[in-house]
């Protein structure tokens, strides 16, 4: 078979289609940005002007807690345990084992607790919001709500978003507590230390400035998870395949945004 000679005409065409492809992508990107801005402005306008659906909010809080508390417990204990077991040898080398409880507590409260809780919730809560709302979109339930004189932003999105923003800080505090308990278990593999003493050690050097920014941070994590999950679900396409797409991209996008928010938060707390 003769060697294929590149056809210049095709090459030119490909180049042209490449630039037009890039242009098309850029255009889509800006349209998306505009959509997101519009979505946020609608959500926040509705949040402050319309009646708050308290019943739905409570339902969502319960679901968020109920769906993720088990996973958070297991992960929290293991993270506390692993952090402790891994830090111990280096601290032994420096003869500084006594700071172990305080050190682990700070890293759990400042970083591990909020981030791990948020990532778990992005997977568990964000995906279920994406899937639920997109399937409601596909099966015209959202349209049905609208003709029944119910604003879907108000009834579906705001309760979910607010519930996530309220529940994720609470779950984070719970994860912190469980993680510290896990750390105590870790300490007790090699030493014996009573829980009371361990907690006293752990909290000795802990200050308000360690806890407060972490809570604020997890509030924003919750808001991101709720807003992204609802955005992906609410704006899903019309076919059944969009349910999977919405759930998946809710997780991917919110996880990525969480890390970015974390980065920003760390810069801000650094200034304090």
């Amino acid at each position: 078979m003769p060697k294929q000679i590149p056809n210049p005409e095709v090459a030119v065409k490909e180049e042209a289609s490449l630039t037009s492809l890039v242009k098309e992508k850029m255009k889509m990107f800006f349209i998306k940005i505009a959509n997101v801005i519009e979505y946020l402005s609608i959500v926040f306008r509705n949040l402050f002007t319309n009646k708050f659906e308290f019943q739905e909010f409570l339902k969502q809080c319960y679901q968020i807690g109920n769906n993720s508390v088990g996973l958070i417990s297991i992960t929290g204990i293991i993270v506390g345990l692993v952090l402790t077991i891994q830090s111990r040898p280096s601290l032994v080398n420096f003869g500084a084992v006594s700071i172990l409880p305080g050190m682990v507590a700070i890293s759990i409260i400042r970083e591990m607790g909020p981030v791990i809780t948020a990532l778990i919730c992005a997977g568990k809560i964000g995906s279920s919001m994406g899937a639920e709302l997109s399937s409601m979109r596909v099966t015209e339930q959202i349209d049905a709500m609208e003709v029944s004189n119910t604003n879907p932003i108000n009834f579906l999105i705001i309760p979910r978003f607010v519930a996530a923003a309220v529940m994720i800080p609470l779950l984070t505090l719970y994860a912190d507590a469980i993680g510290i308990f896990g750390s105590w278990l870790g300490v007790n593999i090699k030493d014996t230390l009573s829980l009371k003493l361990f907690i006293a050690e752990a909290f000795k050097n802990l200050e308000f400035i360690d806890i407060f920014p972490a809570v604020i941070k997890s509030f924003f994590f919750g808001a991101v998870i709720g807003l992204v999950g609802c955005y992906k679900g609410y704006n899903a396409g019309r076919g059944t395949e969009s349910v999977g797409i919405a759930a998946n991209s809710a997780v991917v996008t919110s996880s990525l945004l969480l890390i970015i928010v974390d980065l920003i938060a760390v810069q801000i707390t650094d200034l304090l």
Partner: peptide, 19 residues
């Protein structure tokens, strides 16, 4: 809203609320 209060709509796929 006024218009929608007057109109009933049966969706092709029924569109019952799953939850």
């Amino acid at each position: 809203i006024k218009v929608r209060k007057k109109i009933g709509f049966l969706f092709q796929g029924a569109a019952l609320y799953d939850s």
